[in-house]
């Protein structure tokens, strides 16, 4: 998005009036085809009007089609939508296939899409399954019956083994083979020394 889009109307894709839940209503309410009768740039528009316009109007009885000849002005498609938007499309030198494609676009969108900057390019159907987090979400059941101050809960989670502890462990491993004396007795002796 460049700086020129900063002041463009922004929003999220929304179906107006819950369209499609009850029944689908085509959002294009009228379309105006403006063209010149003898200028070259309107040739495609004239061909479209001669060959396809009647079929288009028959297929889409809900769209009012106006045809407006103007002398020596460029061909233009103007669509008006149910939400009040008006979309102006320049069709200079466009051929009749281009025009039927643009018309198809006008027919299938629900407002002037080129005048809306999308706020987000992604969409989530279910934003969260378990709801927003609270201090009570997924709490351990023991926490309900614990009495405070609690020695277990006060201890830090990462207490590293000290050098003394390591030595004691090594010593115990050495003495494990010697079954005559228990390790604790040996320790007592060593301490006495």
């Amino acid at each position: 998005m460049s700086n020129s889009h900063l002041f463009l109307k922004s929003g999220f894709p929304r179906a107006p009036l819950q369209n499609g839940i009850g029944r689908y209503v085509c959002q294009l309410q009228r379309v105006t085809l403006k063209f010149c009768k003898n200028h070259g740039s309107s040739r495609g528009m004239r061909e479209f009007i001669e060959n396809h316009l009647v079929d288009f109007a028959k297929e889409n009885p809900g769209v009012v089609v106006y045809v407006k000849p103007r002398r020596h002005r460029g061909p233009v498609l103007v669509g008006e939508y149910l939400n009040g938007d008006r979309e102006w499309l320049n069709c200079r030198n466009a051929n009749k296939d281009d025009i039927s494609k643009w018309l198809q676009l006008l027919k299938t969108q629900n407002g002037s899409s080129s005048s809306l900057r999308l706020r987000k390019m992604w969409h989530t159907d279910v934003p969260s399954i378990q709801g927003p987090w609270t201090p009570f979400t997924l709490r351990a059941p023991e926490a309900n019956v614990a009495t405070y101050p609690n020695a277990d809960a006060s201890r830090p989670l990462d207490v590293e083994q000290s050098a003394t502890d390591k030595l004691i462990e090594l010593f115990k491993q050495q003495r494990l083979a010697d079954k005559n004396k228990s390790t604790d007795e040996v320790l007592e002796e060593k301490r006495a020394e």
Binding site: R23, V25, C26, Q29, R30, G62, V64, Y66, E80
Partner: peptide, 22 residues
């Protein structure tokens, strides 16, 4: 008002209104 424009046909608009809502 849109009805003040040259390209305005009230009867066609009424017809299209019904067709649009099926």
């Amino acid at each position: 008002p849109r009805s003040g424009f040259i390209e305005w046909n009230y009867r066609a608009e009424l017809f299209a209104f019904g067709k649009r809502l099926h």
